[in-house]
């Protein structure tokens, strides 16, 4: 008898709960998929980014423009886009690396010309990895990968645990203190989806930044990849970074 009672009670509750959930379940697909995209068709594009370090002059225009366009805090701790300087001094094996204020104020003359063996600038930004570590570790799904290959952060959903910031091998993420959310470069998703170029690409005076649609064989980025022997950062991390660099060496991390 006791067991039967138990089974009865359990069964009733389960059925009631089941019915309750079926009725109240929010209709997730009330809005059509494409309605969420404001008319933009993301299956037609796959964005790509290239950086030609043989051209970069380290002026910092990209950093300044980026901070304006994307409301990045103007302190030396928050960057969507920054520039590093790699300098090999004569007689030294390892390069000296610096990035004063991320290159926002340009680069001070720090090394004597005669002492320098070779040197170059490396602009950095989010690599929009094909296998993004940050998306994998987000506990609530506040960061995600779009179909056109960009990783975005949902400012209204991020809980601020900063696991993604720790998980990014490139240091591309930061904590935006105004929103209390993780933030990062989106390749100016609000611009590229309107047919414009990311602001850093526009601001670059020497065309060291190349942007375009990899699905379009005549785009700047497709031609850039075709023409140069490009490499990507930290292939050992298995994130499959997608920014194509020309003119860097293996010391660049």
């Amino acid at each position: 008898m006791k067991r039967r009672d138990f089974i009865k009670a359990t069964g009733t509750i389960t059925l009631a709960a089941g019915a309750y959930l079926t009725v109240l379940k929010p209709s997730a697909n009330a809005k059509e998929e494409k309605d969420w995209l404001n008319g933009y068709d993301w299956s037609k594009h796959y964005w790509g980014f290239g950086i030609d370090c043989t051209k970069c002059i380290g002026c910092g225009s990209c950093v300044r423009a980026c901070k304006e366009e994307n409301d990045v805090p103007k302190d030396p701790y928050h960057f969507r886009c920054w520039v590093e300087r790699y300098v090999y001094l004569k007689g030294e094996e390892k390069p000296k690396v610096d990035s004063p204020n991320g290159g926002y104020d340009g680069f001070p003359e720090k090394y004597k010309k005669e002492e320098v063996l070779k040197a170059f600038f490396v602009p950095k930004l989010c690599n929009q990895c094909a296998v993004p570590a940050c998306v994998q570790v987000c506990p609530v799904g506040a960061t995600y990968q779009t179909k056109d290959g960009v990783v975005l952060v949902d400012e209204d959903y991020c809980i601020g645990c900063r696991y993604c910031i720790e998980a990014c091998p490139f240091g591309a993420r930061y904590m935006n203190d105004e929103t209390g959310c993780a933030d990062k470069c989106t390749w100016c998703y609000h611009r590229i989806t309107k047919g414009l170029k990311p602001v850093c690409v526009e601001a670059c005076p020497v065309e060291a930044r190349i942007f375009g649609d990899l699905k379009d064989k005549d785009s700047d980025i497709s031609k850039f990849v075709e023409k140069h022997r490009v490499s990507k950062l930290k292939p050992d991390m298995g994130c499959e970074a997608r920014v194509e660099y020309n003119g860097i060496d293996s010391e660049v991390r």
């Binding site: 030396p76 701790y77 928050h78 960057f79 920054w82 590093e84 690396v97 610096d98 990035s99 204020n101 991320g102 950095k124 900063r162 910031i165 720790e166 490139f170 240091g171 591309a172 993420r173 930061y174 904590m175």
Partner: peptide, 13 residues
Amino acid sequence: KGFIYPNEGWFQW
């Protein structure tokens, strides 16, 4: 000491 990524200057955890 040495170089850190600029964003790493803000301590998280």
